[in-house]
Structures are given as C-alpha cells and as structure tokens.
Computed example of a mutant assay.
Amino acid sequence: MFKLISTLLRGRARDAEQAFADRNAVPLLAQQIRDAAQQIQSARRSVAVAIAQNEQEKGQHATIVARIADLEVRAIAALTKGNEGLAREAAEAIAFLEAERDASVKAQAQFTQAIDKLKGIVRAAEVRLQELQRGERLARATQEAQKLDITVAGPGLATLDDAEETLARLRLRQGQNELTAAALKDMESATRPAGIIEKLANAGCGAPLTSSADDVLARLKSRINSAA
C-alpha cells in the first residue's frame, strides 16, 4: 500500500512540475537562452585564451630556434679553434634546445587542433542560440496573440459587440439629426420671404441675387467701352 501511495505522489509531483513548466514555458525558455548565451561567452573566452597561449608558444619556439642557430655557429667556431670541450658544452645545450623545440612544435599542433575544434563548437552553438532567440521571439508573439484571441473570444467579444451597437446607434442618431436640420431649414425658407426669393433666384426666376464672373467681366468691358 505504501509503495502505491509513494508512486502516486511521485506521479502527481511530476504532473504538477510539468504543468508548472508548461504555464511558464516562455520565461523558462528565455532564462535557458540567457544561460546558454553565458556558456557560449565563456567558451569564446576559452578559445581566446587558447589562441593567446598558442601565440606565446610560437614566440618561445622562435626564440629556441634562434638560440640553436646561434649555438651552432659558436660551436663551429670553438671546433675551428680546437676547443672541443667548449664545443661539446655547446652541443649539449643544442641537444637540450632541440628537444624543447620539438616539444614546442607538438604543443603548437595540439593547440591548433584544439582551437579549431573549439571554434567549430562555438560556431555551431552560436547558430543554435540564434535559432533559439528567433524561436523565443516567435513564441512571445504567439503567446500575446493567443491572449488577445482568448480576450476577444471571451468577455472581449461582448465588449466589441456592444461597441458596434453603440456606433450603429450613434450613426443613426447623427443621420436623423442631419435630416431634421435639413427639414427645419426648408421649413424656414418656405416661411420667410427672403428664403422664397432666394429659392426663386436659384431656379432662374428673375434676376440673380449674386453676380457671376460673366456679369463682372461684362461690367468691366462696358466701362472700358464707355471710357473710349
């Protein structure tokens, strides 16, 4: 019985953990991406350190090679002068330096191989990180869109319906107001003599109440003719 209860509790804990992770998937993803970015930055520093160490090893190798060449010249000079004991000391130093030189060459080869491998790992990780960052942005946009969809589909839909009904009533009332104003204007024109005269003039009955451009031009030409 205890074993069954223990198994059930573990199952419920796992379900609760998974449900929590699902509810917080986006912020969890963002933090995981930040952690990965920090690890990639640390890997970049490791590559930079390896490159610096390799450059240092190259400098030491060049120094060793130069010392070997100098000792060989001096050893030959000692042999030429018949000082074989001094030449032997130089030969021993040369042998030691040659071993150092060979070890340096191997170290450089190892550094180069490790650096190339690390660079490849970092490049691949950077590509994956960029894909994750794009995916996170898309996930956030999708989450916000889903929130909006839920809002509209739920209480927000009723709000939109109410707003549309309000707008329809507003447009209807504004249309009625315009018609009422037009009707009042017509009624006022019909009862006022000035309004009747204006209506008759606009209909071409009698002299127009306002001068047209043609009338003005005719009057100006008449003045010119009179002056001549």
Rank of each mutant, 00 (worst) to 15 (best):
N202T: 09
G206N: 04
T166F: 11
A218S: 11
I196A: 08
R45E: 15
H61V: 07
A207H: 07
L9R: 09
I224P: 02
I64F: 05
L170D: 07
A91N: 08
E165C: 08
Q146R: 14
V65I: 10
T151I: 11
A207C: 05
E92D: 11
L79S: 04
D161Q: 14
R223C: 13
E131T: 12
H61K: 09
E131K: 12
L79C: 08
L172K: 11
R45K: 15
G204Y: 04
R67M: 12
E165W: 07
L29W: 00
H61I: 04
R12P: 00
S211V: 06
D102M: 04
L118Y: 01
R169V: 06
N202Y: 07
I33F: 01
A69G: 06
G135T: 03
G204M: 09
L172A: 12
D15H: 12
G135W: 01
D162W: 04
A52M: 05
T191N: 06
G195R: 00
A201L: 03
A207L: 12
K58D: 04
R219Y: 05
G120I: 05
A181H: 03
L4K: 08
Q38T: 15
T142Y: 13
A124F: 06
S104K: 02
A36P: 00
Q146S: 10
E188Y: 10
K81H: 06
G11R: 05
G59P: 00
D149T: 11
T112D: 07
M187W: 08
K3A: 15
N24V: 06
A93S: 15
E164C: 05
R173E: 14
R67V: 02
A52I: 04
I196D: 04
T180G: 03
I76V: 15
R67S: 15
A201W: 01
V122A: 02
T151W: 09
R219K: 08
L71A: 02
D70F: 07
A168H: 05
E100C: 08
N202G: 10
L167D: 03
R12A: 11
L79Y: 02
L220K: 09
E188V: 14
D215F: 04
R67E: 05
K221C: 05
